[in-house]
Amino acid sequence: MKQEEMIKLGISIGDLNGIGSEIVLKTFDDARMLEFCTPIIFASSKIINFLKKHYKLSLNFQGIDDPSKAIDGKINVMNVWKENVNIKFGEEDNEIGSFAFKSLAAATSALKNDKIDVLVTAPINKSTIQSEDFKFPGHTDYLARELGGESLMFMITDNLKVGLLTDHVALKDIASVITPELIESKINTISKTLKQDFRVQKPKIAVLGINPHSGDNGVIGKEDEETLKPTIQKLRDKGQLVFGPYSADSFFGSKNYRNFDAVVASYHDQGLIPFKTLSFGRGVNFTAGLKKVRTSPDHGTGFDIAGKNEANINSFKEAVFKGIEIYKAREEYKVLTENPLKKQGRKI
């Protein structure tokens, strides 16, 4: 783990017609943030200067042409493009989507090649970013392809962590997508990330049912009885502390989630509606299972308030802090699990 060097934190700028640039710049307008990391914003000096003036911010930044030239204690802007950008806050624009992809691709490449340590992504518009180079339902699938690993959408706060068996999958397809192999893979990923990224030695994981009331013993669908329960039992037989399936409608209201290190939801809204209800503005989207650390705020582009100087920065700031914390925890885990004999070059 880095001791003297500051953690280099790369930031993709997201959709420039949304609130992403506002929350990024306002976060680092607070000079105290520069004590925790060296931020590198992947965009262009020209557009950052325009946004600085628009939001009447006092931040100082320097343009660079390579992440290796980033200076600690300063906001660094990696110049990804030179073209002029015509921002129209609150509007969907395919050209703006192309700049969002340029920023994301450059930041991802830097992460892949160890030029930055952590990636924090500002929100994209999933429609306007689509192109020949980006044919994905969101960040998670793109990063999984580029960075490798068993990716999983993991929504986190200090007191609540929710992982998804399926993320951007249509509701009509959920039952057919959830297989024993998928369940086992996702739960193993959550277990691993709790150990290496959150310092939980023996993770205790709850699994929510696929159907209402977890199928009521097959009365309301057979997926829980035939797919979910046998897989949970298989994992328990291997020594994992996995419990369920629990009926999703009462699980959060009864505060049962407090008894577990993580909760596994079967599909997007089953997990994210209660998560955002309990923690909106403080939650972080962490892509667990990747070989690199990526976080993001738990909200979208906010077109309705874009450019109005009204965006709340709390979730983005939390994403920065969580990215740093996870990076440090993972580096510590590597040291703790490294075989000392192997380290000394001895054969075992």
Rank of each mutant, 00 (worst) to 15 (best):
D117H: 08
T121A: 14
A122E: 02
E146K: 15
N125D: 14
K135D: 14
Q130E: 11
T140G: 04
V120P: 02
A144P: 02
G148H: 13
Y142W: 10
Q130D: 07
L147P: 03
L119R: 06
F134V: 10
R145H: 09
P137S: 09
T121F: 01
D141N: 15
L119V: 03
G149Y: 09
L119M: 06
P123S: 08
K115G: 01
D114I: 10
A122D: 00
A144I: 11
T140M: 07
H139G: 08
Y142T: 00
D133Y: 10
S127W: 05
Q130M: 12
V118H: 03
K126F: 03
Y142D: 03
I129H: 05
E132N: 15
D141P: 04
H139P: 07
D114Y: 11
F136C: 08
D141Q: 15
N113E: 15
N125Q: 13
V120Y: 07
F134I: 01
Y142N: 07
K112D: 13
G149N: 07
N125C: 08
G149H: 09
T121I: 04
I124L: 15
D117I: 11
I124N: 00
G148N: 14
K115F: 06
G149I: 11
K135Q: 14
L147V: 09
A144G: 14
K135Y: 09
N113S: 12
T121K: 00
S131Q: 01
I124G: 04
V118T: 04
R145S: 11
I129Q: 05
K115T: 02
G149L: 07
I116V: 13
D141W: 13
Q130N: 10
